[in-house]
């Protein structure tokens, strides 16, 4: 498998010399990072020429400290049984990317989700603004600087709990007379 992976990496490198490859996995996977201008051409190349026909998943990672979003495309080759993680980074303050749904039509749905959850704008994406969230008025909720707990505390009612946060299990066992088994004691606070 190692030779196969090297072979594939060399084939990609011949066409895209500016990629950085991470190949330290001992299973059928290697990672390719590329700048955002070449992402279309590398995906087209992988799909149409090298036989990576299947798009397994697409993810977005929020690198808050570095001020970047990383979009990861996981492509799979049914012939070679190899998966490649194709990564690209875009600016977090101006997250714009050309739409990719002409490569795999299912990317349309992923792009709508990224637009709603991360606020990434895809130029040329023809879809209604609203996807999953209805009447959403806050910032995109999957960004790491969005504090969900604070937002939930502010928006929704909260049921007041016990002030002392005491473990009531012992009190209950005293009332009902049942015993806490030995293995369960270490889980009680």
């Amino acid at each position: 498998m190692k030779e196969l992976k090297e072979q594939l990496i060399n084939r990609i490198k011949a066409h895209f010399p500016d990629i950085t490859v991470e190949n330290n996995f001992n299973y059928n996977r290697f990672d390719v990072s590329i700048n955002k201008e070449s992402i279309h051409s590398i995906l087209f190349y992988l799909k149409d020429v090298m036989g990576f026909k299947h798009l397994s998943d697409t993810n977005c990672v929020d690198w808050l400290e570095e001020g970047e979003f990383e979009i990861v495309f996981i492509v799979w080759s049914p012939a070679e049984k190899i998966k490649i993680f194709v990564r690209t980074r875009i600016d977090r303050n101006n997250p714009v990317l050309e739409t990719l749904d002409m490569i795999w039509p299912q990317l349309h749905t992923y792009e709508r989700e990224f637009r709603e959850m991360f606020g990434i704008q895809f130029t040329g994406l023809e879809a209604p603004d609203e996807f999953i969230l209805e009447d959403w008025q806050g910032p995109p909720p999957y960004r790491r600087d969005f504090d969900t707990a604070a937002f939930a505390a502010e928006t929704f009612f909260e049921r007041p709990g016990r002030e002392d946060a005491e473990d009531v299990r012992e009190a209950i066992t005293k009332l009902t007379g049942e015993e806490i088994p030995e293995f369960a004691k270490k889980y009680s606070r």
Binding site: T148, F151, A152, T155, F156, F157, E158, R159
Partner: peptide, 19 residues
């Protein structure tokens, strides 16, 4: 439905139904 359960800090799940 009582107090949010494991979704207590979710951004789009209500926590107290009887409100």
């Amino acid at each position: 439905t009582i107090n949010g359960g494991m979704y207590y800090d979710s951004y789009n799940t209500i926590k107290v139904l009887d409100k």
